[in-house]
Amino acid sequence: MTQETSENVLSVRNLSVDYATERGSLSALRHVNVDVPKGSIVGVVGESGCGKSTLISSIIRLLADNANTPNGTIDFEGRDLLSLSQDEMRGIRGNRMSIVFQDPMSTLNPVISIGRQMIDIQHRSHKTKAEKRQRSIDMLTSVGIPDPTNRLDQFPHEFSGGMQQRISIAMALQAEPALLIADEPTTALDATLEVQIIHLLKSLQADIGCSILFISHHLGVIAELCDYVVVMYAGEVVEQGTVRDIFHHPAHPYTAMLLKCDPASISTKTRSLPTIKGEIPDLVTLPQGCVFKNRCDRVMQQCDSKVPMWREVKNAHFVSCHWNAP
């Protein structure tokens, strides 16, 4: 992944986010760097509490009220999102940048027909109503909804879960955004439907030429869909690189352990599955040095005192770990 911003649709630099809590300041993100190159799919992997949701919320500028962004920039198509007003942000959300959530039923309004919802979200366009309706039909066709002309007048609950997710993807891509953020879009779906949605996303991405930031905890889906992978742990990006670098040559011990733990990657039958010992550190009282040191199998002396530097192990493969550091 190149570190030059001109090539990237989205470029998050040195972003930190704190939440004010009763126990003190909880640092949800610390010095995070994420790049989404033009026309590529970037996967974000991490377990619960790693800061995935905070990252999305800060990109779409919908952080909770008790959040505070002490430093960092989020560069999107040449503009720093953090310096924009909420009015300017509204011009970007749903237009240049859109989002698909995990549960389609909670993003579609249950009492309005999907046709009206799809026409309503084209409020920025000056086309006639008939043209907008035609555009909605075309979008539904492209996401594989059979008989879209008639189904446009139906309500969300008349569609199955897989169809609902297809509709929310159609709505998200209607404005041909430069960036689609997909937050665990297949988690609520069954295996056979999951594959269908992955293939759909991949082909639509190629057609429209947008970039996708794909958040998931399912390593198999990430491996199959994404070009680049970002690995997060306890509020930090610990590694990023191409999907092959990450899956074949993980440089961070956490990435390596995560891959080893996935039962899907263990082909021989075992009654004792590998695990990562210990627990994620408390984000209010962070330990000194590396955040992963209490669970790491390659821990060294300097891990206790020094926070590892963000360094390039090879072209476009970055890691923050003392192991094998020059």
Binding site: A191, L219, G220, A223, E224, V243, H248, A264
Partner: peptide, 10 residues
């Protein structure tokens, strides 16, 4: 066969 494998070259 639908089960995605954690290997980009699978």
């Amino acid at each position: 066969s639908a089960n995605p494998k954690p290997n980009p070259d699978a």
